[in-house]
Design a protein around this nucleic acid. Structure first.
Length: 357
RNA sequence: GGCCCUAUCGUCUAACGGUUAGGACGUGAGCUUUUCAAGCUUAAAAUCCGGGUUCGAUUCCCGGUAGGGUCACCA
């Protein structure tokens, strides 16, 4: 029996901002794919762009991932691997698959010398798990730059070297990387790395059908947390953007997704983010909460309600909110202030209807 | 513009080539409820266009069109 190769997937974000739903959706799909197969899921923080990286963003990736329930088997920082990248670069130069190129800087801070990949100008084809066969003619790519210098590797080189060293078997990433794939395959060939299996996920789109990003109103996961969305609802919603089980089941926990998720059933077209549906999903998860969990949440939002009445608050309030943010709003607006008042009345007044006798 | 990807209700989507094209969100109406929410019932709402292939295309092929992605010394 042939030994089954262990599946290793990765989430490789760059810490240049707070990550959004779209980013974590690719992470979720990578996680599910690996964990369904008893494989490993690796985080690699791609922080080689010194200008744009911020430590707080890197920390947020860890925090938000954990909050969502995505656990990593390994965590790497790309910046710590420049030594390895340098070795690959040197080998490529030695073997003639890359060369140092004299340049006339075209922009501020441009170098007079960079490292370019020697493009063999050929056709490359790969089979995408979601889209099938895709072919590119790399001639259009020219001799692209793979490093500013031996110590300053750029994206394509770093990705290929790291995926190789970390034993990544499946690269599951956004659609926007499809056209990066031929460059990376060329580099794989140059350094003797195998080509992993690729799966390019359809993008999550803004209402105007453009790629969801901060510019068109996408909010980060940490903001959504602040707005009162439950992590399990977010996970559920993200999974449903582009995937469905083929049944009517829509409400999922992470564990249930592990059972039903099938990467080959992922949609090819992009999906527009729909806030109303998210609110509905969140509400469904809110309603699944136990009395204790609700109590806990209400205490967090409104510690001012006294103990004897808080139980009643739980029942009244949870049926009418969609997010915990609305819970907070409700308390701030004083809508539930009556829960705090001492109300006294004759008990017969509570009988609003007389039974006809 | 070159290259690549995509195309079912407003949105998320289902449909081994044969279905009254199904479900969900949202919207309208109604039932229930002191009210709201929930729940239930119900209505309106889609196969981008044109050619093929086929007895029969949402489905397969080709061509348009539209949208998106990508073409950095960012990732």
């Amino acid at each position: 029996m042939p030994s089954q190769e262990k599946v290793i997937t990765r989430f490789a974000p760059s810490p240049t901002g707070y990550l959004t739903l779209g980013n974590y959706r690719t992470a979720l799909f990578s996680y599910l794919y690996a964990k369904q197969r008893d494989g490993q899921f690796i985080l690699r923080v791609e922080d080689t762009d010194k200008e744009r990286n911020r430590e707080e963003y890197a920390e947020d990736i860890l925090e938000s991932s954990e909050w969502l329930g995505l656990k990593f088997d390994e965590i790497h920082k790309q910046s710590e691997r420049v030594g390895k990248h340098k070795e690959y670069l040197q080998k490529m130069i030695d073997s003639g698959t890359a060369y140092i190129s004299k340049e006339t800087p075209t922009k501020e801070g441009g170098r007079s010398e960079v490292i370019r990949f020697k493009n063999p100008n050929k056709k490359v084809t790969f089979t995408d798990l979601i889209r099938g066969e895709i072919t590119f003619d790399t001639t259009d790519l020219k001799d692209f730059v793979i490093a500013k210098s031996l110590d300053e590797p750029l994206f394509h080189l770093a990705v290929v070297a790291d995926d190789f060293d970390m034993g990544i078997t499946h690269v599951i990433r956004g659609d926007d990387h499809i056209s990066n794939t031929p460059r990376q395959m060329l580099i794989q060939e140059a350094i003797g790395a195998p080509t992993p299996v690729y799966a390019h996920l359809p993008l999550m789109l803004a209402t105007d059908r453009s790629k969801l990003s901060k510019r068109n109103g996408a909010v980060s996961i940490r903001e959504m947390k602040a707005q009162g969305y439950l992590p399990e609802a977010l996970v559920n919603f993200m999974a449903l953007m582009g995937w469905n089980p083929g049944t009517d089941k829509e409400i999922y926990t992470l564990d249930e997704l592990l059972k039903d998720f099938d990467i080959t059933k992922i949609q090819k077209g992009g999906a527009i983010f729909n806030q109303e549906k998210l609110n509905w999903v969140n509400k469904q998860h809110l309603m699944k909460l136990s009395a204790e969990e609700r109590l806990e949440l209400i205490r967090k939002e409104a510690g001012n309600i006294d103990g004897s009445r808080i139980q009643r608050a739980v029942e009244v309030i949870f049926e009418r909110i969609e997010t915990l943010g609305q819970l907070k709003e409700a308390f701030n607006s004083g809508e539930f202030s009556y829960l705090n008042d001492q109300i006294s009345y004759e008990s017969d007044l509570l009988l609003w209807k007389k039974e006809p006798s």
